[in-house]
């Protein structure tokens, strides 16, 4: 995507390696577009800093500030010398007029975020821990278009990651995984899970969803 050159003079900002761009819970009125460099999105969860995402050239972040001021939900840190374009909500209309491609990009970002958030909500709404764990695996499988869901698949995910998706305690997830492994449904390795028949999980979760609303 090509952005108007003039924009760097007006909206360009630079950050050094490891410099904070914005901090979790700081009020946010601006959103950013990465010109060069990379940005790490982190969040302090249970007193540990977790990396949520790493963004690079062409990516947009802080976009939730577009429509109204609200506290940042995560911290953004420059991972190297990074050049950004920074836009205040008030310039937004003008910006889109000048760069309609950016508007399209934002629509795509929002579409994806909405789906991801809904998908996670679907997991959380299941009431049985075992189904929640299964549904996290289903979600991860769905997200990777390269996987063949008809055959055995390998998901690069740890028990902790499943726990955070499912809103469950690590130990409870571990228990469910062990159980599934004993039943011969999955194999567990430290940082990956091999699922023999994800289709079976899909059917179980789908039928549970149906009955929930019946």
């Amino acid at each position: 995507m090509m952005l108007d050159e003039r924009f760097f003079d007006k909206f360009g900002v630079e950050y050094k390696t490891s410099e904070i761009i914005f901090c979790e819970f700081e009020p946010g009125n601006e959103f950013y577009f990465i010109v060069t460099g990379s940005v790490q999105i982190v969040k302090v969860i249970n007193n540990k800093e977790k990396t949520l995402d790493v963004l690079t050239k062409g990516d947009v972040f802080g976009e939730m500030a577009i429509l109204e001021e609200q506290p940042r939900s995560a911290t953004a840190i420059a991972m190297e010398h990074t050049k950004l374009l920074r836009f205040h909500r008030n310039n937004f209309d003008a910006l889109l007029e000048g760069n309609p491609q950016l508007a399209y990009k934002l629509l795509v970002i929002f579409s994806k975020r909405i789906y991801d958030a809904k998908r996670r909500l679907m997991i959380l709404l299941l009431d049985e821990p075992q189904l929640k764990v299964m549904d996290v695996m289903i979600m991860l499988a769905e997200q990777d278009p390269k996987l063949d869901l008809q055959s055995q698949i390998t998901l690069p995910v740890s028990a902790q990651q499943i726990a955070s998706w499912a809103g469950m305690a690590d130990t409870d997830v571990q228990k469910e995984l062990t159980h599934l492994a004993r039943l011969g449904k999955i194999d567990i390795y430290g940082d990956k899970v091999v699922v023999h028949k994800i289709g079976e999980f899909q059917r179980m979760v789908a039928s549970k969803r149906k009955s929930m609303y019946a």
């Binding site: 939730m64 429509l67 937004f92 309609p100 508007a103 399209y104 929002f110 909500l121 809103g167």
Partner: peptide
């Protein structure tokens, strides 16, 4: 839409509100 930025803006408002509502539900379920 490149020729109709106002439409995009409107859509973004709708999307952003949807996202906020979902986040709220997630928080309440948790």
């Amino acid at each position: 839409i490149l020729r109709n930025v106002n439409v995009v803006l409107k859509m973004l408002r709708v999307f952003s509100n949807q996202l906020r509502r979902i986040h709220k539900s997630v928080r309440s379920v948790l």
